[in-house]
């Protein structure tokens, strides 16, 4: 065999070898996979936050506590490197595109809840080079932590600052771990996932359930009869940076 032939053969073998794992998986695929029975489903999940109800209890953090405990979100003491799925901030930071010096006076020290907007056209999904973040058919912008390479392109692309990166191993900063849910590891990006794991079991998201004032309304934005659509049709609401065209699915009822 001359060198040329050898190289051709070597190239061919490498290509074929790349197909082997696929062959092994096919053997597994003979079994059936089905969606869970009794799951809550929707065509486009969305959330409406009744801001005024939320303000009735300005010091309440039940939703944040419930979410962060359930999902093993670490409490990292360095604010610049913290991880958060749902948190609070002031009007001028939440809606910086709507500057109005008088509003700022009205809204001073009034908290607005922040979480991933689960956009209709999510820029984070568009830029992810491995489809580690992707949009599900029910509108949830999902994370596959197994696949994330930690390039943080999604963080640069998200106009809402909704994504957190694990700059260090998060585990030492989880004081009371929930054994039912995984943690994350250093080097991956994470965010709110609209409690996909609870919807699968027929339960509402943890923050919605935890809210004493029922200020969080969660439902299908494409179902005429859902509570969320009824509320949004009857009351004035705003979304964060809607002019960017990402189509946020989180609405703020004012």
């Amino acid at each position: 065999m001359d060198r040329r032939k050898f190289l051709k053969l070597a190239g061919l073998s490498v290509t074929l070898a790349g197909g082997v794992p696929g062959f092994l998986n096919r053997e597994v695929k003979a079994r059936a996979y089905t969606p869970p029975p009794g799951a809550l489903t929707a065509r486009r999940w969305g959330m409406a936050i009744d801001v005024k109800k939320c303000w009735e209890e300005p010091n309440c953090n039940e939703c944040i506590k419930a979410c962060h405990h359930l999902h093993n979100v670490p409490d990292i003491p360095d604010k610049k490197r913290e991880v958060k799925w749902i948190w609070k901030d002031e009007f001028e930071h939440v809606f910086p595109d709507k500057p109005n010096e008088f509003n700022n006076i009205i809204f001073t020290h009034k908290p607005f809840l922040l979480l991933c907007n689960h956009c209709e056209h999510p820029p984070c999904v568009r830029v992810c080079p491995t489809q580690a973040t992707f949009k599900r058919e029910d509108g949830i912008v999902m994370m596959d932590y197994h696949r994330c390479i930690g390039c943080r392109f999604c963080m640069a692309a998200c106009p809402f600052g909704a994504r957190s990166f694990n700059w260090v191993d998060p585990r030492p900063y989880i004081k009371d771990p929930n054994p039912k849910f995984p943690t994350r590891m250093k080097g991956v990006v994470e965010k709110c996932l609209f409690c996909y794991e609870r919807l699968e079991k027929g339960k509402m998201p943890a923050c919605v359930e935890a809210c004493k004032k029922k200020a969080l309304i969660f439902g299908d934005l494409e179902d005429e009869h859902s509570e969320i659509v009824q509320v949004l049709k009857s009351r004035f609401s705003i979304r964060r940076k809607s002019e960017l065209g990402t189509g946020p699915s989180v609405f703020y009822l004012l």
Binding site: P35, A39, F134, D138
Partner: peptide
């Protein structure tokens, strides 16, 4: 590996064995 892909990416949480 197939499980995690089916469950996380396809929403297929139920496995019916052979």
């Amino acid at each position: 590996n197939v499980w995690r892909n089916e469950a996380i990416r396809q929403g297929m949480r139920i496995y019916t064995s052979s």
